[in-house]
Every structure is written in C-alpha cells, then in structure tokens.
C-alpha cells in the first residue's frame, strides 16, 4: 500500500498536533498541516494530498467556503475532503453531505481510530 498523504486544515494548534500524531503514528501516513482555510487551499494546490481533513468552524474563511474553493479550482477539485467538525447535529451533517463532502468525522474523535475512519470513508482497503 502506498503511503497516503493527508492535509489537515484546522485553526486549533492542539487539535492539529494530536490529529497529525495520530495519523502518522497509527496510520503511518504522511501528514502536512495548515492553520487556516487560505493556507489549506495553497497547500492543497502545491502538495496535492490524497485527502484533506478540513475543520468547519474557522475564523475568516470557514470550512464550507474553503471546500467550495477547493471544488471550483481545477487543481484541487479531485481531492476528497472529509469534514472534521464539532457540529454533531444531524441537520448540519446532512447539509455538509449535500454540498458534496466525502465524509464527516465529528469532534472529539478517537485518535486511535482516526486513520481507520478516514480509510473507510475513502474506501482505502488497508
């Protein structure tokens, strides 16, 4: 199996750090991070990750806007996006799926399971 490359976009330093460690140590993946939507867009374009783990509630450009930019940009529109969100309500989740995200993982997540969850959503058969 190829080593997957994941881009984590989250404004929370601690969450970014925990998620990164979880994916590197448990999933054995390569992880890069961005602390804002704008930074995320730039890194997605240049690094071409296999998937993006995107926080929804961020200042300035939130996850939804970031996702829409990713989708309208030819360089990034093929990259699957998984929302990482504290919004656990069913209505929010339905709304996210409607706009075309590949999957949703709610906060707080299980660090030991995070890589498995992502792989399952993206049908990466490990």
């Amino acid at each position: 199996m190829d080593t997957k490359h994941i881009l984590i976009v989250d404004d929370e330093d601690d969450i970014r750090e925990v998620a990164q460690l979880a994916l590197e140590a448990i999933g054995g993946w390569r992880v890069s991070t961005a602390n804002s939507g704008i930074d995320g867009l730039a890194k997605a374009k240049t690094e071409q990750p296999d998937a993006i783990l995107l926080d929804v509630m961020m200042p300035d450009m939130d996850g939804i806007e970031t996702f829409q930019h990713l989708r309208t940009n030819a360089d990034t529109q093929h990259i699957p996006v998984i929302f990482l969100t504290a919004k656990a309500q069913a209505t929010d989740q339905r709304r996210f799926l409607q706009i075309g995200v590949t999957g949703i993982i709610t906060k707080p997540f299980k660090a030991m399971m995070l890589a498995d969850q992502i792989a399952e959503l993206l049908r990466w058969n490990t």
Binding site: E12, D14, I15, V18, K87, K107, P108, F109, A111, M112
Partner: peptide, 25 residues
C-alpha cells in the same frame, strides 16, 4: 451550537491526546 463547539474543541484535544497516550503508539 456555539457552546457545543467551544466545549468540543478542548475535549477533542484532551480525548485525542489521552487516546494516543493510552495506546502503545
């Protein structure tokens, strides 16, 4: 909605960190 987000954010870090600590990783 905001409170839930604000509470979940630190919880995510705590839970994730403890999860990793609890494992042998």
């Amino acid at each position: 909605s905001v409170v839930s987000h604000e509470l979940r954010t630190p919880l995510t870090s705590i839970s994730g960190a403890l999860d990793l600590l609890a494992s042998s990783a």
